[in-house]
């Protein structure tokens, strides 16, 4: 495999990212959380706008993902469902630009401390290493 290290932006709600707040980045890394994933914490993923996620790509992300509560158990009722719809809208727009829609993903995780918080980060890391550099980073003429 190439030694390409993808730049990944994660948008996580307060509830699903508690592990990170409690343990800190260092402890998370020890548990296998990839260091190339930048976590943006927000009160609720329902707050995340399509434009925030697109900005992450503009700022150089090779991939972006959102972690919110389980669809039927969102702390703010519909927040994570809304986030999932917005991620869906970006997948569609990426496809229209002939860019792999898998560069953005939505995950629904239980709140609190779970190994899945680390494993979805690893999953995205693995996926993006395969996909390679973002097509948005082409040389400009």
């Amino acid at each position: 495999m190439s030694d390409f290290i993808p730049n990944i932006h994660a948008f996580c709600c307060h509830y699903t990212s508690q592990q990170m707040c409690n343990e800190g980045q260092e402890e998370l890394s020890r548990e296998g959380f990839p260091e190339n994933v930048v976590i943006n914490r927000m009160v609720c993923t329902g707050k995340v706008q399509v434009s925030n996620l697109l900005k992450a790509f503009e700022e150089g992300a090779d991939g972006v993902y959102v972690v919110g509560c389980p669809e039927d158990k969102c702390h703010n009722l519909m927040g994570s469902q809304r986030a999932a719809k917005r991620v869906g809208a970006i997948k569609k727009a990426l496809a229209e630009l002939s860019v792999e829609p898998e560069r953005i993903e939505m995950f629904h995780l239980e709140r609190g401390f779970h190994p899945e918080f680390v494993s979805v980060a690893q999953e995205m890391d693995k996926r993006l290493r395969k996909l390679g550099l973002s097509p948005f980073k082409g040389e400009q003429s």
């Binding site: 706008q49 434009s51 697109l54 727009a93 630009l97 002939s98 097509p135 082409g138 400009q140 003429s141």
Partner: peptide, 21 residues
């Protein structure tokens, strides 16, 4: 205004992908 922000972002990304300024 919100949709303007989104489309502007998409056009910038599209241009970046085409390697155009």
């Amino acid at each position: 205004e919100r949709e303007v922000e989104i489309l502007a972002s998409l056009i910038r990304l599209g241009k970046q992908k085409e390697g155009k300024k």
